[in-house]
């Protein structure tokens, strides 16, 4: 599995199939990226679970915080890890103890741990690194186009007007697999020691 860039179909398949997402490192502070992503994914109809031991007893957008993945107490489809690269491995190791096993390990924008990814993949999980599910959902649905962002997708179909809790179609035509070549190259160079 090449983790430098992902085919749109891979990301599309994940976002179309998962229903519940546990977000490790979710923050109740409303200027943190994790708060943005949590709130957006909840608005798009995902069953969101905030995981952060520092905030147990509080709610995030109406969802109660749990201390750890083991405390969720029900099956969860995807683990979205909002921690820096050096804190990924223990989360993946904990995810591997869950039963049933989550289908997807997702590491946030800026986070990458190839060893943890290999472990998760060996157990049959799909892995995404250094991406934001909010950005990817917004891109594949073209909702992000409101901000002048290149969705790298095309469609001649009329889109619905999004409402609260509504899932959007992610099945637009991808432009070259959804890659932005120069940016992907730069990210790869950054992740390699020089």
């Amino acid at each position: 599995m090449n983790h430098d860039n992902y085919d749109d179909n891979y990301i599309r398949g994940i976002l179309n199939s998962v229903k519940s997402i546990a977000m490790v490192g979710a923050s109740p502070v409303n200027v943190r990226p994790s708060y943005f992503a949590f709130k957006y994914l909840a608005q798009r109809g995902y069953d969101m679970i905030p995981v952060n031991p520092g905030h147990v007893g509080k709610n995030l957008v109406g969802k109660p915080f749990v201390a750890s993945l083991s405390d969720i107490g029900r099956a969860v489809d995807m683990i979205d890890i909002f921690r820096s690269s050096s804190h990924i491995m223990p989360v993946v190791e904990e995810a591997l103890t869950l039963s049933p096993l989550p289908k997807v390990i997702w590491m946030q924008l800026g986070a990458r741990d190839d060893a943890a990814a290999a472990k998760a993949e060996a157990a049959g999980m799909k892995v995404v690194m250094n991406r934001c599910p909010k950005i990817e959902y917004g891109r594949l649905s073209s909702e992000i186009s409101w901000m002048g962002v290149n969705s790298r997708t095309l469609s001649s179909k009329r889109a619905p007007i999004p409402t609260q809790g509504m899932r959007l179609s992610l099945n637009r035509m991808s432009v070259g697999g959804g890659a932005t070549a120069a940016s992907d190259r730069a990210a790869k160079n950054k992740s390699e020691p020089t």
Binding site: D7, N9, N150, L154, K157, R158, M173, S174, V175, G176
Partner: peptide, 22 residues
């Protein structure tokens, strides 16, 4: 089909635009 790279002229006509939702 999803991995086909549309050409420049296709992007010049289509990129960013889709029928108005309303």
């Amino acid at each position: 089909m999803t991995d086909r790279l549309p050409g420049f002229s296709t992007l010049a006509v289509h990129a960013g635009a889709q029928p108005d939702p309303t």
